[in-house]
Simulated assay, not measured.
Amino acid sequence: MASEQMAGGADAGGPAPPAPPARPLDAVDQDILRMLQADGRASIRSVAERVHVSRANAYARINRLVEDGVIRGFGARVDHERAGQGTSAYITLKIVQNSWRTVRERLRQLPGAAHIALVGGDFDVLLLVHTPDNRALRELVLTRLQAIPEVLSTRTLLVFEEEDLEPPG
């Protein structure tokens, strides 16, 4: 399977080495990306057949996409509710100027943190979290987030329904 064969090439822990400069992706690379986004467990053979290249060519292309940092890893799409994380929220944060790196490190350690983004606009950081229930969300916001000295304010947007968009194809 692609995920098993490629797993050795991607470092799952620690900072990644600097990626080489971006190269343009051709139509075959784009097709491979779409296929792996839809099914990260696809075998090299099935990828090669679907994009009409040899297995060696498909393997080399996937390796290059991993080495170039285009593919950051392989993973599972999780139904958070079925996994016991039935409450999701986007939390906006205003933070002390020039404290992004410190805040980011603290946010990475939060249980249930799924996505962290430094953004421009009315707030500085957008954080997506998944928690077991509203009580756990309340604890996360009021006890953990607001205890970070560089966090000036938070606003919580409760997610009622969500859907991961599938790549076209």
Rank of each mutant, 00 (worst) to 15 (best):
S3M: 14
L157I: 10
L137E: 02
G14C: 11
T102W: 00
I116K: 00
G9K: 09
R55D: 11
A2K: 00
D26K: 08
V129G: 04
D133N: 15
P24G: 07
P18K: 09
A76E: 13
G69E: 04
L110P: 03
L110R: 04
S3V: 02
Q146G: 00
Q85G: 01
R45P: 00
N63C: 07
R138W: 05
L93M: 14
A76D: 08
A58S: 07
A113T: 15
D124T: 06
A2M: 10
V47D: 03
A117N: 10
R72I: 06
A27F: 00
T143E: 15
G86A: 15
A38K: 08
S99E: 11
I32N: 01
D79V: 13
V70T: 15
Q85R: 14
R23F: 01
R138D: 15
M1E: 08
R101F: 05
R77Q: 13
I91E: 06
A89Y: 02
V125E: 08
Y90W: 15
V151S: 10
R82D: 09
P167E: 11
L140C: 11
L152H: 06
V103G: 05
L145C: 06
A60K: 09
G121W: 07
H80D: 08
L137D: 00
E163G: 10
N63H: 13
T143W: 03
V119E: 03
T154F: 14
R135L: 10
E4V: 04
V78Y: 05
W100I: 12
G13Q: 14
E81P: 00
R144Y: 08
I148Y: 00
A42V: 00
G14M: 13
A58M: 03
A76T: 10
M1S: 15
G86L: 04
V125Q: 05
D124V: 06
I71A: 00
M6R: 01
V103W: 02
G112K: 02
E105Y: 03
Q85C: 03
Q109A: 15
Q37Y: 03
I44W: 02
P21M: 07
A27P: 01
L118S: 12
H115D: 12
G40C: 03
A12L: 12
S153T: 15
G9M: 12
E4K: 04
R108T: 04
Q109S: 15
M35Q: 07
L25V: 07
I95H: 05
A76Y: 11
L93W: 09
P20T: 12
T102M: 07
M35Y: 04
R61K: 12
V129A: 04
D29R: 09
P167F: 09
G84R: 11
G86Q: 10
A83M: 14
A147H: 11
G112T: 03
R23C: 05
T156C: 12
A38V: 02
R106D: 02
I91H: 09
E166T: 14
P20D: 10
S46F: 11
G13H: 14
A83T: 06
A147L: 00
A114T: 09
L157W: 01
R55G: 04
R45S: 15
V125G: 03
W100M: 07
P18L: 12
A113W: 05
T92G: 10
G121Y: 06
G112W: 01
N63D: 11
S46Q: 12
G169M: 02
H115R: 08
N98R: 14
A22C: 06
R108H: 13
T156R: 13
